[in-house]
Design a protein around this nucleic acid. Structure first.
Lengths: 241, 241
DNA sequence: ACCTGAACACCGTTCAAGT
DNA sequence: ACCTGAACACCGTTCAAGT
C-alpha cells in the first residue's frame, strides 16, 4: 500500500533520473553523441562523476533511458485518427520520427546502440500495428510490415546522419544536398560512369522528398503482397470499421 | 615516371597500412567495435600507440579505411551475370553484404560512422545501378532505387546487430530468434495487445528469411512504381539485352 | 541514502627526442 | 622517415570515506 519510497536517513536527493536525462539530452543537442559521457552529464548537473551511479547502474542504462525518452516525445494520439487514409497516418508517423531524430544528430546512434524493447519503443510498434490493421493487413502481415517500416525509417535516418559533418550544428537540408552534390560530381566518370551521371539524383537521396518516395515504394510493396495473397479484402477497404 | 616512393634516409618502415587494417579487423572480429582503438591496434602489431599516426592522420581515417576494406571483400563480379533474373542478382548481392556484416558485429557501426563515399562504396553503388539498368529502370529511377535498397540492407543489418548482446561471439540465427522470442513473449498483453499476440512473428524479423521477404517487398514497390510510370517496358522484360 | 575524493585502467592525440 | 617515451586531457567505473 505504501507506494511512496521512504527516505528517512541520510542526505536528500539533489537530483532525479529526469534531471540526468535532461542534462544528457542538452549535451546531445549541443555537442553531439560523443559528448554524452557520464562525466559530462555529471558536470552539467553540477555533481561529481560517480554520483550518476546513484541513479543508473552504468552508462548503457543511461543510453537506453535516453533512447526511450526520445521515443516518448512522439505523440501517438496524433496518428490514431481512423478517418484518415492509413498511408497518410504512416507517412505522418514516419515524418515525425525522422524530423525528431535528424534534428538531434547522435540520437539515432543511441537508438541503434541496443534492442528497441522499452515501453515507448513497444508503444511505437503498437501504434504501427494498429494502423496496419486498419489498412486491412492480417496480424502476421502487420507484424512483418511494421518491422519493415521501422527498418526503412531508421535506416534512412542513420544513412542521412552519417553524411553529416559530426559534430556541429545541423545544416538545413538544402545546404546538405549541395555539399553532397559537390562530392558526387567529383566522382570519376571513367570508373563509376553510372554513379557519376546520376550524381544529382543521388545527391537528393538524403532529402525529405526521397524519404517519402522510399516509404511509398515500401508501402506499394506491402500492398502488392497483400492484394496477391489475400484477395478477400481489396486495398483501402479494411474489413473492420 | 618514378612511381616508387624513395625512402633513402631514416629507419625502414616496419609496417604498412594493410597490416594496421589487418590488426584492426582481427580486433573487430574478436572483441567488438569498442576494442578497435588506436592503442589496441598498436599493441596488436607490436608498436607504440603513436606509431599508428605515421600511417593514418587520425582514428576516423582508420575507421574509414576499415569500412572500405570490408566493402572491398565483396566480389562484384559474382553479380554481373546478366543471364540471371535481376531480382536474383540483387538478392545475392544483399545476402552477401548481410552475411559479411552480421558475421562481424561492429562492422555496421563503422560503415554508418561516416559518408559511404570511398572507392569500394562507389563500386557497390555502380554494381547496383548496372543491375537496375538491366531490370529496365531509367537512370533516375535506378539511382533512387539503389539508395532505397542500400537503406533497406544496412538498416536491417543495423537493427539486427543492435539486438545482439555486445560484445561476444555471434550466436547462430536460431538461438538469437529464441532469445528474442522469450523477450517478446514477456511483453504485457494488456498494454501492448497487438505486439504481444504477434510476438512470435516479430521475433522472426531478425532472420534471413524476413530480410529476404522485406527485400522482396521493396522490389515489389519498385516494380509497381515502374509499371505505373513507364508502361512501355513491362516487368522482367528489360529493353536492353 | 546519497554524495565526494581518489584511484584504476583505459582512450585519442601531441611533442620532443632518438635513429 | 619512422619510431619511442612522456605527457595531456579525456573516458567509465570502483571503493572507501563522509554526512
Amino acid at each position: 500500500m505504501t507506494a511512496e519510497v521512504r527516505r528517512v536517513r541520510g542526505r536528500r536527493r539533489t537530483l532525479d533520473e529526469e534531471q540526468i536525462l535532461d542534462a544528457a539530452l542538452s549535451l546531445l543537442a549541443s555537442r553531439g553523441a560523443d559528448s554524452v559521457s557520464v562525466r559530462g552529464i555529471a558536470s552539467q548537473v553540477g555533481v561529481a562523476p560517480n554520483a550518476v551511479y546513484t541513479y543508473f547502474p552504468d552508462k548503457a542504462s543511461v543510453v537506453r533511458a535516453l533512447a526511450e525518452r526520445i521515443l516518448g516525445e512522439i505523440d501517438h494520439g496524433a496518428f490514431d485518427d481512423r478517418d484518415l487514409p492509413w498511408r497518410e497516418r504512416i507517412h505522418a508517423l514516419a515524418a515525425d520520427l525522422r524530423a525528431r531524430l535528424i534534428a538531434r544528430p547522435g540520437a539515432i546512434d543511441l537508438l541503434l546502440a541496443g534492442p528497441l524493447d522499452g515501453p515507448n519503443a513497444l508503444a511505437l510498434v503498437e501504434t504501427l500495428l494498429a494502423i496496419l490493421a486498419d489498412a486491412g493487413l492480417s496480424p502476421d502481415d502487420a507484424a512483418r510490415a511494421s518491422y519493415l517500416l521501422i527498418v526503412h525509417s531508421l535506416g534512412s535516418i542513420a544513412l542521412e546522419v552519417a553524411e553529416l559533418d559530426r559534430p556541429g550544428p545541423v545544416l538545413p537540408e538544402e545546404q546538405r544536398v549541395l555539399r553532397r552534390q559537390a562530392a558526387l560530381r567529383a566522382v570519376p566518370a571513367d570508373r563509376y560512369p553510372r554513379t557519376a551521371s546520376a550524381a544529382d539524383v543521388m545527391a537528393g537521396s538524403i532529402t525529405t522528398e526521397q524519404f517519402t518516395w522510399g516509404l511509398d515504394r515500401v508501402l506499394d510493396g506491402l500492398s502488392v503482397q497483400r492484394s496477391s495473397e489475400a484477395k478477400q479484402h481489396p486495398p483501402d477497404h479494411p474489413l473492420r470499421g
